[in-house]
Design a protein around this nucleic acid. Structure first.
Lengths: 209, 209, 209, 209
DNA sequence: GATGAATGAGTATTCATTCAT
DNA sequence: AATGAATGAATACTCATTCAT
C-alpha cells in the first residue's frame, strides 16, 4: 500500500491529512480489487478511519475516484514537465514524456493500474492526462518530424498502446524490451520507419538520460 | 434489444430457447448499463422470465457473461471463416477478417460494446477471439509480408487498435474514414509504410470486397 | 398486537397474507412508538418476516402507513354503513355513525391511536374517513335539524372533537361519561341546546342502540 | 426565519445570546420540516454555529424543543396577561385571551406551527399554556356565565378548537371569518346559544379593542 | 422447468455524540 | 465557549440465492 499522498501532507492540517489517507487508500483498493468491487467502508477502514469519516470529505465513491485519478495525473504531469524542460525537438519531448510516464506508472504499480482502469471505465476523468501528449505531437508536426496526419483517433491509438505497455510491464515485471517495443509502436503509428524509430529512441535516451 | 440468439433457436427445445433469451438479454443489458450494474433479476425480467429461472441455466452472472461473450465470438469467427475461405495471402486474410469483425460489431452495437468491454474487464473470456488473428499473422510472416518481428505484445497492440476503432465507430456512427484509419494503423504496426498500407487495403477490398 | 387483517386473509394467497401481516404489524408498532420512531426492520420483524420482504410489498414506509390507515378506515366505514342502514334522520345517522366509529376505535385501541395520529401527521391520508360525516351533516341540514351554517371549519371542529374523545377514552379506559360528552359537544357545535342534545342522544340510542 | 429571541437578548452575555440563537433556529426549522426531520447539525448551522456548540447549551434535541415551546408560551402568556389586566368578566377575559393568543400565533406563523405541533406530539410540554384558560373559565363559572359543567375534557375540546383555528388561519391566511367562527365554537361548547355568542364576541371587542 | 415470495448478508448513508484544538 | 473532524451505531435499500408451489 502506497503512502504517497499521506507522506506529502504530513505537515498539513488534519483535514488535509485525512483526505490524503482516503486517496491513498482508494488507489490501493482499486489496484487490488478493480473499480467496481470497491466499498466505502473498505476504503475508510484500509485508511484507518471509520466509515462515517468518508462523508466528511467526499459525497460519493465516484467523487473520490475522480479526485484520486486527478491527483495521480497531476503528480505525473508535474514530473514530466520537469523532465522535458529545455528540450525543443517535439519527437524527443514525446519520447521522454512517454518514458517518464511509463516509469512512474510502473514504479508505483497501483498508480499504473488505476490509471489504465480509469481510461477505460471513466474516460471523462482522464482526458486531462493526454494534453501534454497532444501538445508535443503538434510541436513535432510543425517541425515536420511526423509524416502522417495527426487525428484524434491516432492520438487515442497512441494512448492505448502506452497503457497496454504499462499494463504489460506491471503484469510481467519491468522489461526493457517491452518498454522499447512500446516506444517503437508509437513511432510506427506516427509513420516512422521501424529501424529509424529504434535509432531515434536510442539517440534520445543517450542525449537526455 | 437484439433477439439474435432467440431467433436462432426458435426451433430448438424450450431449455435451449430460454437459455438464448437469457444470453440476448444479458448482452442488451450489459450494452446499456455496463458489466457492473447488472443484476440477475434485471436480466431475467428483460428476458421475460422470473429471477429463479436464471438458476436453471447458469450458476453465476459471470458464467452467463462468459457464455454470452463466447457466443458472440463464435458467431463472428464463423462469419470471418466464411469470408476468407480460399484466400491465401496472409495480409489480405488479416485485412478482410478485421474488416468483417468490425462490420459485425458495429452493425450490432450491443455486440461491439460487450466485446470491447469484455477485453478490458474479463481478458480471460476473450482470448479465443484473437486466435484467428494470430493464425493469419503467422501465415503472413511465413510469406515474408511482415517486416517486423511478431511478438505477443504486438498482437495485443493490434487488438487494442481494432477495439478502439470499434468503440469509436459505435460512438460516432459508422464512418469509412475511421475504418480505413484503423486498418492503416494495424499495417503500420506491422512495419508497413503508410502509403503502401493504404494501397494494400484498397487493392484487397477491390479484389475481395 | 392485533391480528385483524392477518385473520381476514387466512385463506388468501401467500402474497396477500404477508401483506396483511405487514399492515397489522405497522399498526401495532405505530400505536406503540408513534409514526416517527418506526423502522422497516422493526415492522418486518414484528410481523415475523425478514427486512427484505418489506420491499416485495411496499416501496416506502409512508406507502405502508398510508395503506394501513386506508385499510382501517375501510373497515370502519363498512361497519358504519351497516349500522345506519335504513335510518333516515340525518342527526340520528350522525350520532350512530360517530358512536360506531368511537366504539371500533376504542375497542381496537391500536386503530384508534393510528387514526388519531394520521389525522394530525398525514391529513391527506384520512380525508376519505370524513366523507360519511359530511353526507349525514348535509342530510340533517336539509331536514332543518341543524340551526347553524355548516362550514368546512365546523366539520373539522367536529372531527377533532371526536378524535379527542377517542384519544381520551383510550388513555383513560372506556367511560360512558366521556362518550356522551363527546356526542353532546358535537351537537353543541351544531347549534343544538345542551339539554336538547342530551335528550336526542338518549332517544337515538334507545331507538336504534 | 424569526430572530425574536436573538433580538430580545442582544444585550445579554454571549452564553445567553447563543442559547437564543439556537431556540430561534429550532423554531424555524421545526416550522419548516416538522418535529421529526430535525437534526442537531441543522439547527446549529442555521443558527450560524458549529454542531459541537449545541452541547454547551442543551443535552438533547427534545430538551431544546421543550425549552423553545416553553419560551414561546411564556411570551404569549405575558402578552395575554397585559391585555386582560383590569377586566373582571370571566367570559370577556377568555375571549380576549383567546383572541390575543390567536393573533400572536398567526402573526408569527412559526410559533403557531410549533405550538400546534407540540400539543399533539409533546402534550406534556404544553400543559402550562392552558392554565390561563382554566383560570378564566373558573372565574366565568363562578360568575354564572357558563351554563354547562366545566370538565377537563371540555377544556381540551376548547383547546383543540383554538389550535384548529390557528392552523387553519396559518394555512389559508388570516381571515376574520375563521377567527369569529373559532370564538363562536368555543362559546357554543360552553353552552351558549350561537346568536348570543356572536353578540357577546362583538360587544367584548368593541369594549376592549 | 418455471415461478416468484422470502431471505439475510452486504452496502450506502445519516446523525447524535465525543473530543482535541 | 466554540469549533469541526472523527466516530460508529442505526437505518434504508439492494440483490444473489433458496425453495415451496
Amino acid at each position: 500500500m502506497s503512502y504517497y499522498f499521506r507522506n506529502k501532507t504530513l505537515k498539513s492540517k488534519k483535514r488535509e491529512r485525512t483526505r490524503s489517507a482516503l486517496i491513498d487508500s482508494a488507489i490501493s483498493e482499486i489496484a487490488v480489487n478493480g473499480f467496481n468491487n470497491l466499498s466505502i467502508k473498505e476504503v475508510a477502514q484500509s485508511a484507518g478511519l471509520a466509515n462515517g469519516t468518508f462523508y466528511n470529505h467526499f459525497d460519493t465513491l465516484d467523487e473520490l475516484i475522480k479526485q484520486a485519478v486527478a491527483a495521480v495525473a497531476r503528480e505525473i504531469v508535474e514530473d514530466i514537465a520537469i523532465s522535458i524542460t529545455g528540450i525543443n525537438n517535439g519527437l524527443e519531448r514525446m519520447i521522454l514524456s512517454t518514458e517518464k510516464a511509463i516509469q512512474k506508472l510502473v514504479a508505483e504499480p497501483e498508480w499504473g493500474t488505476i490509471f489504465v482502469g480509469a481510461w477505460h471505465n471513466f474516460p471523462e476523468h482522464s482526458q486531462d492526462a493526454i494534453r501534454f501528449l497532444q501538445a508535443d505531437l503538434r510541436k513535432a508536426k510543425r517541425q515536420k518530424l511526423v509524416p502522417v496526419k495527426v487525428t484524434r483517433l491516432l492520438e487515442d491509438q497512441i494512448v492505448t498502446v502506452i497503457l497496454l505497455g504499462v499494463a504489460t510491464l506491471i503484469r510481467q515485471g519491468d522489461k526493457t524490451k517491452i518498454r522499447l517495443e512500446t516506444h517503437v509502436a508509437i513511432l510506427k503509428l506516427l509513420g516512422i520507419d521501424p529501424e529509424r524509430a529504434a535509432e531515434l529512441i536510442q539517440s534520445t535516451f543517450s542525449k537526455h538520460g
